[in-house]
Design a protein around this nucleic acid. Structure first.
Lengths: 238, 238
DNA sequence: CGCCTGCCGATTGTCGACCGTCGGCCGCAT
DNA sequence: ATGCGGCCGACGGTCGACAATCGGCAGGCG
């Protein structure tokens, strides 16, 4: 039997309505198109999308469990508001997962190390392209792709799941502040030393690179002198 | 105005129906009262509890996101089935979080160390009591309380959230196998050395204690010669 | 004049019903 | 006998409607 590339139409809208709604809302939140604290009324969204409230409700519940929305009893959900300590928590948790994943990759021997290195180099190339284009959203998205790829290389799906939640929260913070990219070159370099340490199998250097990178990133987000956003809307409360 | 201890009636059924259902089902799964692979039809549960399908549906969705149930498109949900590699993933992820939490506690200085040590000693005492009673369910529950307490002492709510999911999965595995407690004394000792290393601030010893403890526990769960459960029902598939 | 109390609009929590889809069984053709 | 296609029961996904609950505001009482 001929192969007849039918596999290209494998997926035929294989998503439930609630999942698609959740996906869209998630993207809107991540991209900063929804202001922190903004109320999301089920009925309004349902009417806007021309669906019933039930799937909207399920989508909102998903996002609440991903900590992108907060639910108040009988008062609906509103977009999450990140405080400085939230940001430190997020980066601390990311550090926990990334460090462990890096260690496990090194434990996996040269083969696992090589595969992880290759994947990371590919993402780094995409990061170069995004930087050249200058699109903030894309840059931060690819940046997180890099770290997600590192975690995924450890081969533990539960770590990936946990990390994806933190990743979404991180992107939300970054895109809200529209923080200036730390010179671009710096971003490439920081990820470069991480790859080098991984390729060389230098555990201490690798863990230090991860820790430093995340600490620097968290500082940028919590320090008040973030550039951009001149409209007086504060990126962080309190 | 007099204080008039009204604070004692603070909570007046402050839970939504779906949350209570989720709580109950979660407990049933954790305690092994639901067989792996068992189908959970929404309508049946709804009728059983004399509520509508809506809150049942929300409860099920919560548990799916906690990885205690698996959802199949248009085929409802069924109780999760853990493979050996799942168990390794769970313990690996737990190791990631616990190790990091332990490190952060040590970073927090002597004060944080002392607070964490006190909390852990209290749980260890509860563990002794549970061991004396010989109730398997309670022993494993308190065991996980110990580890949860360790993570909580790091003061990062996101780590606690992630850990609670892993904790529930771990308990489910343990209670399904009804694995024989490794002599009881051994359990106390393993946690004891962990506390000692923490109290002494010996980072390397602490991390090694956590890693060893989790590795041993995972081995017990995945090795086929687990005692108990003689009814031919396999605790793990494949 | 300030605080408490009762009402009001808005929104959620819950309900019962309909429709589409899925997996399994039966019958038929080969 | 076997492989295939079509039917069938069951279940989930979705919908519109009802009622309970909450925050805010106006009015009354001290």
């Amino acid at each position: 039997m001929a192969v007849s590339g039918l596999s290209s139409l494998k997926t035929l809208e294989r998503k439930s309505t609630s999942d698609r709604i959740a996906e869209d809302l998630r993207q809107m939140i991540i991209e900063g198109r929804l202001m922190p604290g903004e109320q999301l009324a089920e009925a309004r969204i349902a009417e806007l999308l021309d669906v019933s409230r039930a799937p909207v409700r399920e989508a909102l519940q998903q996002l609440v469990q991903q900590k992108l929305l907060v639910a108040a009893r009988n008062r609906g959900v509103s977009v999450v508001t990140f405080t400085a300590s939230d940001i430190w928590e997020i980066y601390d948790a990311r550090c926990a997962i990334e460090s462990h994943a890096a260690g496990r990759i090194l434990d996996g021997g040269p083969g696992a190390r090589a595969r992880a290195t290759d994947a990371l180099r590919a993402v780094l190339e995409r990061l170069r392209v995004a930087l050249k284009q200058g699109d903030h959203r894309k840059i931060s998205a690819v940046d997180l792709d890099f770290h997600t790829s590192l975690v995924a290389s450890a081969g533990n799906s539960r770590l990936v799941d946990a990390y994806s939640i933190l990743s979404a929260q991180t992107l939300t913070c970054i895109n809200r502040l529209e923080i200036a990219i730390p010179s671009g070159e710096e971003l490439i370099d920081e990820h470069g030393v991480l790859i080098d340490a991984l390729a060389a199998g230098e555990r201490e250097a690798l863990l230090k690179a991860i820790n430093d990178h995340l600490t620097v990133a968290a500082s940028h987000l919590t320090s008040p002198q973030s550039q951009g956003r001149t409209d007086g809307e504060p990126g962080l409360p309190r």
